[in-house]
Write a protein that binds this DNA or RNA. Structure first.
Lengths: 333, 333
DNA sequence: TTGTACGCGTTATCAC
DNA sequence: GTGATAACGCGTACAA
């Protein structure tokens, strides 16, 4: 591996001059610069960020920790993060913790030992202690997706209330008045907020909240299917359902088809997340896209602010979602 | 941030002695060790992996570069890589190049600057120069998914011939004799090999190769739909089709349904990749799983071998795929 | 405009 | 058992 000294020798200059062209500093004669560039090219030299980091106390690396990169919420997010980080001269150190709290802790320690300049992560609320420790150390952190009740840490989050409102009002405007809800319940951050959006919209249109129409499950196709079955077993089934997660919406399809009903003729369905599947099932699922790529970019921007700042900023950036109209909702006349 | 010198001062010993206890070296009096441990504890010191890496010329970081992490081939692979790397004491530096050759080159340079101990990547064949440069430098690299015609670089790959054979023979054993093929063509590595598997199987069963039954497109649902349309417009349509990519298979569904035909009653379909969608569309797609997680793990193991070795190993590790039986193929009586 | 010398935090090689 | 000290590869005052 060539070092800056090798370049200096080859170009017949001093290391500081090489350093100058490496960092695009002024005051270096075009001619010498050319010599140096040539040497760099010939020796295939690229400067050591490790050594550089040591003296600058800055690694130009940020950490990114997720519980499961295969979860559809994360790949696009990762792309946004990497893209923005790159454009700012940062690399990203990645960890998939497989939802394991111990691995989360380990990841944090490893990354600090690696001198990352900051960390973007999506931790379980249960592992909040580790986050608090980081904050106490004044270490730049940004939490993704999970807003905290006690906001001591900067966060990039979805506006779930807005999303719930958007979905529900879309159905209302299409003429639906009896609208079901399939949700992950009030325990989850997103579930809680989307229910609020749902209820607010109903209220706005003067519709009473009917508990029978609200089915709580978990974010999986099977669970979605069960929830929809329960709804379809009601005496008075709704004309439309808002499934808070596409995966649950996809499961719902099966329950509906099993009953011999069709979408959207017999029942309309709107999802949330805009996962890949939603555009490939038939009818194509109308859903809400969460702009994950943008979220990732915004996350990096926020982390950069944290890195600049002396104190933890404790900021909250909200990304608004967008409704994707497809074929699973019909207009009631 | 406390340094090793601070500890030395506080414990009234030399930095060398501190370094010794840090690395669990022998020949240090229990008493002094205790003093030092106490100082470490009190100052909340943890040694800098950066400085350590500088002198040891080893970062315990490996690089991972993909063209698009949102492509279903990669998230599970990433999980396998991170999991294995972690168990070996390695962290992983991640890059998504968005299929951009310049970013690929940049990623390599950045990672080398970061002193990663090796890189696992999935590069376009077109950017082969960069790989060759790495090899020439004796830099440990493992290529994922793309076997090279000129094998100068270690590779983890799928056994596509085997996969093509497995899919085709599965259909043959189910009694199908007229079998279509939807492929990405001979230009692509995987396409080429799967076609071979297909032809071999046909031959084995004494069936003539019929060019009309082979449709070439690209790996997308739309393209799959077009390919299947062409097949369905034949005078004598096949009873089964092997779609070389699930995405194309998913597109095929639509072409089939549009014709008023059903799966698998009128036509059987088998895919390849086992992407998420395949288990959610109806009927569930019978397909071939490529064991991506295992592939990732094997990739790390191979990279470790490369790192140990003095010379590039130029090894090729092949991961066999597995057929996932679902509902899109029927048995012909 | 360019070169010298020191420091970043650690480990390894000698001494003692 | 323990302590100096020279690397590791780079950036940056300060000098020239």
């Amino acid at each position: 591996m060539a070092t800056i000294r090798d370049i200096a020798k080859k170009a017949q200059v001093s290391v500081s001059t090489v350093s100058r062209v490496l960092n695009n500093k002024p005051d270096v004669k075009a001619e010498t610069k050319k010599k140096i560039d040539k040497a760099i090219e010939e020796l295939g030299f690229s400067p050591s960020n490790v050594a550089r980091g040591l003296v600058l106390k800055k690694s130009s690396v940020i950490g990114f920790i997720v519980p499961d990169i295969a979860n559809p919420s994360f790949p696009e997010l990762a792309r946004g993060i990497v893209a923005r980080a790159r454009s700012l001269g940062y690399s990203v150190m990645f960890f998939d913790t497989n939802h394991d709290k111990h691995v989360e802790k380990e990841a944090i320690n490893l990354m600090q030992g690696k001198h990352v300049d900051g960390i973007i992560l999506s931790f379980n609320e249960a592992n909040r202690n580790e986050l608090e420790k980081l904050i106490k150390k004044q270490f730049p952190v940004v939490q993704i997706y999970r807003k905290s009740s006690r906001p001591t840490i900067s966060t990039i989050a979805l506006d779930n209330i807005y999303a719930g409102t958007m979905a529900t009002e879309y159905l209302l405007k299409k003429g639906h008045r009896r609208i079901g809800l399939i949700t992950t319940g009030k325990q989850t951050q997103s579930g809680y907020e989307r229910i609020i959006g749902y209820r607010n919209s109903l209220e706005k249109f003067g519709i009473a909240y009917d508990e029978d129409l609200v089915q709580v499950g978990e974010n999986s196709a099977d669970s979605g299917k069960r929830c929809m079955s329960n709804i379809l077993n009601l005496k008075n089934i709704p004309t439309a359902v808002f499934a808070c997660h596409d995966l649950m919406a996809v499961g719902s399809y099966e329950a509906i088809f099993d009953k011999g009903l069709s979408i959207p003729e017999d029942i309309s369905l709107i999802g949330h997340d805009n996962i890949d599947v939603s555009q490939y099932i038939r009818p194509k699922l109308t859903t809400i896209d969460t702009h994950k790529f943008d979220l990732g970019q915004a996350g990096v921007d926020l982390l950069m602010e944290e890195i600049q700042a002396e104190q933890p900023l404790n900021k909250e950036v909200i990304i608004k979602a967008e409704l994707i109209e497809r074929d699973s909702v019909r207009e009631l006349i």
